[in-house]
Simulated scan of single mutants.
Amino acid sequence: MGKYQLGEFEEVVLLTVAILHGEAYGIAIIEEMEERLNRKVSIGSLQTVLRRLEKKGHLTSEFGEATKERGGKRKRYFTVTQYGRSVLEETKEQRLGMWRAIPEIVFNKG
């Protein structure tokens, strides 16, 4: 294994923030994950992982402008850092290496 270790949910959250580039805030992240993965995501578990990824240096965040629709509350937008991109790249290579190592016979039925 490489030097980076991501849990499955951490990896999915980091990938989703990258997909939403510039528009990654709590509800948008949840909606994107639920649509792509067809699974429910709680705001509490997402917030926990976002804070953990930010603390590890994989993400940064900043507040957007206050809006009337949100009663003056500002959204916190997340961005993948260079370090986070490196982690995703290494994780991707690890996964692809594992897939490539599976003998063809495993997927051939007959």
Rank of each mutant, 00 (worst) to 15 (best):
G2C: 06
Q5P: 09
L6G: 01
G7W: 09
G7N: 07
E8H: 10
E10Y: 09
V13N: 01
T16Q: 00
V17R: 02
V17E: 06
A18N: 07
I19L: 06
L20K: 02
A24V: 00
I30Q: 03
E32M: 05
E32T: 15
E34W: 04
R36A: 11
R36P: 14
R39K: 05
R39I: 14
K40L: 12
V41H: 10
S42G: 13
I43N: 12
I43W: 03
L46D: 00
L46C: 00
V49A: 04
V49L: 09
V49S: 02
L50H: 01
R52A: 08
E54M: 03
K55H: 10
H58E: 12
L59G: 01
E62F: 12
F63C: 09
E65F: 04
A66P: 10
K68G: 14
E69R: 06
G72T: 05
R76L: 04
R76C: 12
T79P: 01
T79E: 04
V80W: 00
T81E: 05
Q82D: 13
Q82H: 10
G84W: 12
E90L: 14
E93D: 13
L96W: 05
G97T: 03
G97H: 10
R100G: 11
I102K: 03
I105A: 15
V106C: 10
V106Q: 00
K109A: 15
